[in-house]
Design a protein around this nucleic acid. Structure first.
Lengths: 126, 126, 126, 126
DNA sequence: GTGGTCTAGACCACC
DNA sequence: GTGGTCTAGACCACG
């Protein structure tokens, strides 16, 4: 369920965070589900436990998961956060970057929308 | 024309690269135009000349600009490159990340498309 | 394995790039091998870490090496890229220059071919 | 007869030197022929007279041309120099670089020899 | 004037 | 430990 590419320029801990969010969006992980323990995930993806720990801390900090003492880490029932203006602004910045890059690749607005829909459906459709 | 946020996690040289591409897309900079000299831009945005140089070299390497010895750096007449499969795959990865993040913020597919169009029009419309 | 001539007109970072490619061709460095760390090579050849870094980044950009976060820089398993028309044209230009220079030194076509074979065998033969 | 590419990374003065040597090799320019005056060449190729001057000085220094006071600059009758060990070593270095690059493009020794012969014949054949 | 290279030395993120 | 980014300031080649 979690695939890490150590060659990627995206930090491993971010890859973990993102893939957990992706799994939630795809319905593979559901609210209430337990995440693998740090040790277990660490041996599964051959990563340093500190790296997993950092990812889990970040997930908890942003309200995706919650940790229950002695039980483990779980997807929160109310994992979806509302509009966070600051975060939304960040996302818009990245989106702007991406749009400029796609424009530079020769894509029209319509083609960009198609790309977005295609990726969205791949995520939601499962 | 170029605004740098030194507190951003995005490296300064990348901000420069991106903003120059953005300016080209907006029509603020045109093929044939000369970029500010390294020293001039360096004093304009209060960054080190080496940092500007790195950005300019990357722009040249990716075919956006060309350097004429002793004259300066210019937007290439044929600055737009075609589709590059590897690059496109990278872009899709980032777009996927963004979509998951937007989904997490509670946006529907339609809202995402609207967001994309809004940003696109801000870029193209000027 | 890497010898730098600081008095050469060829930039140090280019000498590094070239010698690593040379070492690969000679079989001294093999796909999968780790390059010396920036700091280590820096102290070995008495050059600034930034200079090494520039060479390593160029090697990565051209597909000779890959960087694994926190681990180091490695020769790629699939390091050899195919023909690139633009690059080949550049090479022909330089070769033309060299031929004119050799002609100017009084070498015949046959002597040039012998020269080429001699150097080639020194590279391949080890 | 002389074509300058101001975009090239090769300095303009070197392009001039090389093209004059190329013209001699091709038989377009012959020993005894007069080179265009600095002013004339300067306006022909739209380059700074200082640049032309630098090229002419270098040509004279290396024994390709000679200047006759009040008359102009001429191709020397004995323009071909004998073996200069230092220069030959330099040439070998560049040739080695080129061979590594061609190897990296996937060319065999035979293909390299063919390339060399092809370029040589283009130069000599005219 | 232009850009290109290099050093010295610092700070950071990641693993 | 690894590489990535940045600053400060120097020197050089080129036109």
């Amino acid at each position: 369920m979690i695939n890490i590419d150590p060659r990627s320029s995206q930090p491993i801990y971010e890859q973990i965070i993102f893939q957990i969010k992706e799994n939630i969006m795809k319905g593979i992980m559901m609210p209430g589900d337990q995440l693998p323990s740090i040790r277990k995930l660490s041996s599964m993806i051959l990563a340093n436990p500190n790296t997993i720990s950092k990812a889990y801390q970040e997930l908890e900090r942003t309200g995706v998961t919650e940790t229950i003492r002695g039980k483990g880490t779980f997807i929160r029932e109310d994992y979806k956060i509302g509009a966070d203006d600051e975060k939304m602004e960040e996302i818009r910045e990245v989106l702007k970057n991406i749009i400029v890059e796609m424009h530079y690749m020769g894509l029209s607005k319509e083609e960009m929308n198609k790309e977005l829909e295609k990726i969205y459906d791949e995520l939601e459709g499962e």
